[in-house]
Amino acid sequence: MKIRSHCPINFTLEHIGDKWSLLILRDLMFKEKRHYNEFLESDEKVSTSVLGDRLKMLEENGMVSKGRDNVKKSRIKYSLTKKSLEMLPILIEMITWGGFNDDKTEAGKDFLEQATKNRDQLISSIRRKIEREHFIK
């Protein structure tokens, strides 16, 4: 991967790409989606070509890994990596900002309250869940 500059914001954007990549990470972290077709079902309606491209880029950048599904061996299952798990606090901040600024937000009041009053506890709880579900023991 060729990095255009080593500005920390640019470096981050070079790894996550664009809004579609962030939405894939959101789906993996918060919506328990793990398979290609599940990502296609998201409300934002990503095209198949964009989805395939972003999954490939995220994998190449070490943000997701792919493997065989334990239930249906012919199906690919995507997982978060430790590198992408480090994005959790950033995504929680984005949810909080959007939740308080979008009067039609899908973010639950309980989640937003916990994100503002018990942020560290919320992050720890989500992190443990992701580690159990995504990381191979």
Rank of each mutant, 00 (worst) to 15 (best):
S65T: 15
T105H: 10
T116E: 09
L55C: 07
Q114P: 01
T96N: 00
D69C: 15
K73P: 15
I92N: 02
G98K: 05
G62K: 11
W97V: 12
I76D: 05
E93H: 01
E93C: 09
A115M: 06
G62I: 11
N61I: 00
N118D: 10
V50G: 10
R75L: 13
S84Q: 02
S84I: 14
M94E: 07
L85E: 09
S84V: 10
G52F: 05
S79F: 09
R54M: 15
L112N: 11
K73H: 11
L55I: 14
D120Y: 00
E86I: 05
K66G: 01
S79R: 03
R54T: 10
G99W: 02
N70P: 01
L88D: 08
V64W: 07
D120S: 07
I90A: 05
I92G: 01
K104A: 13
A115C: 02
K77N: 09
E59P: 07
G67E: 14
F100R: 05
R68Q: 09
F111M: 11
L55G: 12
K77S: 09
D120C: 00
V50D: 02
N118F: 12
T116Q: 12
K56P: 02
N61A: 13
S65D: 06
F111N: 02
A107Y: 01
G99E: 03
T96Q: 06
E60S: 13
R75P: 09
T105P: 05
V50N: 15
T116F: 01
E44K: 08
K109H: 02
S74T: 15
T81K: 02
M94C: 05
F100M: 07
T96G: 07
S65P: 03
T116K: 01
I76M: 12
T96M: 12
R68G: 05
K109Q: 02
R68M: 05
D102N: 15
R75C: 12
T96D: 03
I90S: 09
M87Q: 04
S49L: 06
D110A: 03
E60T: 04
S74K: 09
I95A: 10
K109G: 05
